[in-house]
Design a protein around this nucleic acid. Structure first.
Lengths: 132, 132
DNA sequence: CTTGACTCTATATCAACTAGAGGTTGTCCA
DNA sequence: TGGACAACCTCTAGTTGATATAGAGTCAAG
């Protein structure tokens, strides 16, 4: 049985983060020692590692909650899991598109003041002061 | 003189957002009517529009605070403004790069389960359950 | 028996809003 | 003049995914 500090180290996260996941219902309440310390077994560690791998893929805690639900019920059809990942990919793509457009706008803004001058004559400040 | 609702409409934002910017020191405290309603002149409107245009470019309130500082002091050299925009562009580019890598990872993850099966045999769930 | 590392709970903080409660002011119409 | 209703006021809490702190308790080594 692992104490919270050892568990956190194995999952490369902070002790507070583990407690936070517990409070969010992602990790089940672990056993406790006589002195009230949390004690984790390997199944709990695997569950935490699963959560951390999902977070590394930038899934929200809500999405992870859904995935854990399927992980806990092996007899269910995994179609929803696939759909969840598909929609996550779509979100990431939408964000990339948005940021590319933003990059374009910022480059244009930057071009409006290529030489240093006084703020009064700054092309950037005046661009931001006018309707797009 | 505009009341807060009219001001907000012209800047296409919520009334609460205007009050929030005031509390954050981005907008100066406006005049008040006899009945304690906020009253804005055109200069305040232009300032709010400036803030909203910066936000549309995803600048943080701290970055905007810096830009407003230059906007308020026309005699200053605008070199820092240019630098701020440059660094903002760099941040956006870094984020795009990060998201592209994430997209790649998610597509690979998605490929691990191309057909619907039970959760037990789901390639996605098992990929997320194993070390990368 | 004390030091120090670890743990416990509870609370506050971050960004940039957004939403609500509960009360006041202003305006319109009969 | 009165009553309805919109718009305004302040204050507080919630969002996301943690992170940071305070103040107290536990435990092993020296």
């Amino acid at each position: 049985m692992l104490r919270i500090g050892e568990l956190a180290k194995k999952a490369d996260c902070l002790v507070q983060t583990v407690r936070f996941y517990e409070s969010e219902g992602l990790l089940l309440e672990p056993a406790r020692s006589e002195g009230n310390f949390r004690l984790y077994d390997d199944a709990q560690l695997q569950r935490l590692l699963f959560i951390r791998r999902c977070r590394a893929k930038d899934m929200t805690l809500d999405e992870i909650r859904q995935l854990l639900c399927f992980r806990d019920r092996p007899e269910l059809d995994c179609g929803e899991v696939n759909a969840l990942v598909d929609s996550h990919i779509a979100q990431v793509r939408a964000k990339i598109k948005e940021l590319r457009e933003l990059e374009r706008e910022l480059i244009e803004l930057r071009r409006s003041c290529d030489t240093a001058r006084t703020a009064r004559d700054c092309g950037i400040l005046s661009s931001l002061g006018e309707p797009a």
